[in-house]
Amino acid sequence: MIRKTVPNVTEALSGVKDNMTLMLGGFGLCGIPENAIAELVKLNTTGLTCISNNAGVDDFGLGLLLQKKQITKMVSSYVGENDEFERQMLSGELDVELIPQGTLAERCRAAQGGFPAFYTPAGYGTEVAEGKETREFNGKMYVLEHAFKADFAFVKAWKGDEAGNLIFKGTARNFNPCMCGAAKITVAEVEELVPAGTLDPDQVHIPGIFVQRIFQGERYEKRIEQRTVRKRE
């Protein structure tokens, strides 16, 4: 068994430097690598390019890095929940690349799987396709999109073992599996780190080969963005 465990978040993030490109898993605030983000705030790393579906809210998730102006470029599909983000973007302080959500996921997975590029119909005929190669297949138009290149991927799983095998829970899975192995170094944080041999190999979502470092997150706030409930009859 090849051990991937590191003792804490500080060691998990060793090697993170200014001006790097980072991938961060999560959808909204669901399944975000809370501990890695907290450590990035502490490290005060700047000039970061962050690839993440959303940009957090003003005071949580990637919003914490935006507040401290640590991010110079965001690559996302939807950023509507963050006022500070919108302010920095409209004022030109923050460079933003908005791309379709499926394209974002596939650009991660292409990096993971060694595909340099792929064709997708998403964005054809829109400003997203401007300057990009297009091609017709079977009478339909497609846009060429390229795999991401990133230095670190920070993902969050529910359970993981010493070998870096990961299991996700609910919709907290989202972009996390797609980003594993899609950067030079993948750092997984988990709610529960278990000894090798504990997880049923049949139930593993992401094999440890895609993960270089794994650690147990110290605490998880798991903030709910839109608490919606129904009345009991």
Binding site: G80, E86, P100
Partner: peptide
Amino acid sequence: MVKGMGGAMD
């Protein structure tokens, strides 16, 4: 208003 397209384009 610049919120992004989310999954709409796909």
